[in-house]
Amino acid sequence: MLGADHPDTLNSCNNLAYAYQAAGDLGRAIPLFEATLAEQERVLGADHPATLTSQNNLAGAYKSAGDRDRAIPLYKSALAGCERVLGTDHPTTRTVRTNLQVATVANAPNPSGWWRRVLPRWGRSWGTGRGDASSAL
């Protein structure tokens, strides 16, 4: 048995929370994301890549729940950590940056205009076959 504090166990909890979110059960997802993030910060540290990923995932759950006031600062914190630990061009850093931009632009007066400017750069940055970026809104 790995135990409740084992990194694999914490990763599994994060994955379960993500599954709850994907199934539309934010009532289960958000508390599990919050508890998992707190444990990862305690066990792994705030700058561990798994902790930063969980921070991004919790921000995404908040955004899905319509709580951008909690999502955006959490995305900003995750992005700062990812840039510091992983570098600005790491795939996780790029994902968090995009998630922050999406959460921020969703409140902008003309989000569709933003997408018209960003989508051409999306292909250069990520390449093709990465899915439809416009569905992130």
Rank of each mutant, 00 (worst) to 15 (best):
V43R: 06
D25T: 00
L16P: 08
A103W: 01
A38Y: 04
S112R: 13
L16E: 00
E34G: 11
V118E: 11
R68V: 11
G131K: 11
I30M: 10
N56T: 03
Y18S: 15
H48Y: 02
A38D: 14
K76Q: 13
R124K: 10
Q101D: 10
L137F: 06
I72M: 04
L100D: 04
G27K: 13
L137Y: 03
G113T: 15
P109R: 15
L100E: 08
D67P: 07
A136S: 14
P49C: 00
L37F: 07
R84W: 05
P49A: 02
S12I: 01
S64Q: 12
L79W: 02
A136E: 06
T53M: 11
L37N: 09
L52F: 05
S135N: 08
E34F: 08
L10Y: 00
R84F: 01
R70N: 00
A61M: 03
A133T: 02
Y18H: 15
S64G: 12
V102G: 07
D89E: 12
A38E: 15
A108M: 04
R116S: 15
N110M: 09
S134G: 08
L37T: 07
W114M: 03
S54M: 08
D69F: 03
L52D: 08
L37I: 07
N15C: 05
V85R: 12
G127M: 10
N110W: 13
R84E: 07
C82F: 07
G60C: 04
C82A: 15
L16S: 05
W126V: 14
A29S: 13
E41Q: 14
A4D: 10
L86C: 07
R121W: 14
Y62T: 01
G66A: 08
T92C: 11
N99I: 00
R68P: 01
T92Q: 15
T95R: 11
Q40V: 12
P31V: 03
R117S: 13
R68Y: 05
P111N: 01
A78W: 02
A35S: 12
G127C: 13
W114H: 12
M1G: 15
P31W: 08
G131C: 07
P73N: 01
N56K: 07
Y18L: 13
S54H: 08
T128I: 13
R28N: 11
P109S: 11
A136C: 05
T104F: 02
W126Y: 15
R42P: 09
T92H: 11
L26H: 06
L26Y: 04
H48A: 01
P73V: 03
W122C: 11
G60V: 02
K76Y: 00
S134C: 08
T88Y: 11
A38I: 06
L79H: 05
T53E: 12
T98Y: 05
L10N: 03
